[in-house]
C-alpha cells in the first residue's frame, strides 16, 4: 500500500476538541483494516500525547505516517518545553493544574502509558522551544 500522511492542528487549552485528532487516526487505521490491537495502541498513545499538548504544551500538530509495516506518530508543540524529561517519564510525576485533574487527567500516567503501548518512543524537549514526542508502532499483524 502507498504510505499515507496526515497532519492535524492541536490547540492549547481547547478541551472541546482535545482528542479529535487521535479519533481521526483511529478511524483511519480501522478503515485500512489494521489489527484492532495495533489500532488501539496507536490511538491510546496519540490521545495521551495530544492531551499532554493541550494541557502543558503550546499550539502544535499531531502527524501520522501510515505504512504497511509501521505507523509513526509525531506530536510536536511550540510551548515551554519539559524541564526534566527523565522526571516527567516517571509514573505519578505531574505538573498538572487541579482543573486538569478534575477532568480525569494529570495523574502522571500519560508518558508512561505511551512508553508501554508504543514499540519505540523518543521524546525531545528544550525549554522555551517546545516538545516533540515521536512514537513508532510496528505492524506485526500484517492484515493490510
Amino acid at each position: 500500500m502507498p504510505s499515507i500522511q496526515k497532519t492535524f492542528h492541536v490547540t492549547k487549552n481547547d478541551f472541546i476538541h482535545a482528542g479529535e485528532a487521535s479519533i481521526h487516526v483511529k478511524n483511519l487505521l480501522k478503515s485500512l483494516n489494521y489489527v484492532p490491537d495495533l489500532v488501539r495502541r496507536v490511538a491510546i498513545c496519540g490521545y495521551e500525547a495530544e492531551m499532554n499538548l493541550v494541557m502543558h504544551g503550546g499550539d502544535g500538530e499531531l502527524s501520522v505516517d501510515v505504512n504497511a509495516d509501521r505507523i509513526i506518530v509525531d506530536v510536536i508543540d511550540h510551548g515551554q518545553g519539559i524541564a526534566d524529561v527523565e522526571l516527567a517519564m516517571q509514573e505519578g510525576y505531574s505538573t498538572a493544574k487541579d482543573e486538569y485533574r478534575e477532568m480525569g487527567f494529570g495523574a502522571g500516567m500519560g508518558l508512561p502509558n505511551i512508553k508501554k503501548n508504543s514499540d519505540e518512543m523518543v521524546i525531545t524537549s528544550e525549554q522555551g522551544n517546545g516538545t516533540h514526542v515521536k512514537m513508532v508502532f510496528f505492524n506485526k499483524g500484517l492484515n493490510v
Binding site: 472541546i16 482528542g19 487521535s22 491510546i44 492531551m51 480525569g104 487527567f105 500516567m109 500519560g110
Partner: peptide, 26 residues
C-alpha cells in the same frame, strides 16, 4: 481517571464514571 482507563485493554467492557464529559466519551 482517564489515563487509568487508557492503561489497559477494554474491549467488552462497560465504563462507569462520574465525569460526564467529552473526554470520557473519547
Amino acid at each position: 481517571l482517564m489515563s487509568d482507563v487508557l492503561s489497559a485493554f477494554a474491549q467488552g467492557s462497560v465504563f462507569l464514571t462520574g465525569l460526564a464529559t467529552l473526554q470520557a466519551v473519547r
